[in-house]
Structure formats: structure tokens, C-alpha cells
Simulated assay, not measured.
Amino acid sequence: MAEWVQNLMDSMGYLGILLLMIVENVFPPIPSELIMPSAGFAASRGDMNIFLVILMGVLGSVLGTLPLYYLGRAFGEKRLIEWADKYGKWLTLSGKDIRRADDWFDKHGTKAVLFGRLVPGIRSLLSLPAGMSEMPLPKFLIYSTIGSAMWASLLAGAGYLLGENYDRVEQYVGPTSRIILGLVIVGAIWWFVRRKREQAA
């Protein structure tokens, strides 16, 4: 995949970075941990400008958050509560749980969006709850932009400094993202089992 990403950026330049980062947020299997360090390496060779690389990375990342944000907004909290009350018992999920989660996101959503952009594995998924909780679009865009700028700068900077060894970034970050995603899944299973036990008691 690294060679394909590099070839796309070589042929399309900054537009390639923009498109790859949009797609990365909608289809996470194309990782930003590969895209941005590769672009940073291209900048270190003098083929691109590092600041434009970061700018295109941030712009693509923010644009890529919008489809899932609007999907969450269209589905909405009310529909989700109705669905949970009707079918959620199979998942030990109720409308009350949805309201509680929504209240949590109302309180901590800005921090979740800001720092969640720095967490591989869940960074693209945060747009759904942001949309469902009806986080105002300007606020969502501001915090997404700040978080995405930090992430893109970190990855592109690492690729710039590592040069031909830019792929080491993905080697280190890739396993970390899998660990984080695994912890999220384990947490969800733990919550599921605990709810089942509470219902059985």
C-alpha cells in the first residue's frame, strides 16, 4: 500500500494528499500514518512544500469528517432512542443509555473531538456521535481542524525528519492503533457483560 500511496502523490501532488486524507476519514483502512509521513518524505526531497503538505492533510482530514457527521445528524438522537427502546434489549441497550451517552458527549464532546483526532483507530468514528448529539457544525469544524492540524503536523514532520525511513512511522503507530482499538472493543464487551448481569440480578 505504501508504494501505491507514494505513486498517487507523485502523480497528483497536493491534490493526491487531499483526496487520500478525505478517503482515510471515511474508509479508515487507508491510514493517515502512511499518507502523511510519505508526503513529509516527498517534502524532504524537495518535491513538495512541507507547509502545503500539512495544509492539504488538514483540509482533507476535516472534509473527510463531514459525511459521518451528517450521517449522525440525519439519524439523530431521537431515532436512536426509539430504536434502542424497541430493539436494544438484544444488545442490553436502552433509550436511557443513549440519553446518558448523549449527555456525556454534550459535556465532553469538544475534548473528545479535539484529542480524539490524535487517536488512531477511533479518530474518524468520532464524527458520528458528534452529529448525533447535534454538536454545532462551526464548533465541530474548529476542534476537528485543531486536532487534525496537530496530527498531520506530527506525522508529516516525522516523515520529513526520517526521510527514506518514513515508513517507520506507520510501523510504530500501526500497532498502537490496533491496541487502542482492541481496548475500545474490550471496554464495549465488558459493558455489555455487566449490563447482562445487572438485568439477570
Rank of each mutant, 00 (worst) to 15 (best):
A2L: 12
W4D: 14
D10P: 01
D10E: 15
S11M: 11
S11K: 12
G13M: 06
L18I: 09
L20T: 03
M21S: 11
I22L: 08
I22K: 07
I22H: 09
P29W: 06
P37N: 07
G40C: 12
F41W: 14
A43I: 04
M48Y: 11
N49M: 13
F51Q: 11
V53K: 05
V53G: 03
M56D: 08
M56E: 03
G60W: 07
S61G: 12
V62P: 00
L66I: 13
Y69E: 01
F75H: 02
E77W: 03
K78V: 14
L80Y: 08
W83Y: 06
W83V: 12
A84D: 08
D85T: 08
K86T: 08
D97G: 14
A101P: 02
F105L: 07
K107L: 06
H108Y: 14
K111V: 15
A112F: 10
L118P: 09
V119M: 14
R123H: 06
L125I: 11
G131S: 07
F140T: 00
G147M: 06
S148K: 03
G157M: 13
A158E: 05
L162F: 09
Y166D: 01
V173C: 10
R178K: 13
I180R: 00
L183T: 10
A188P: 05
V193I: 15
R195G: 04
Q199A: 15
A201V: 15
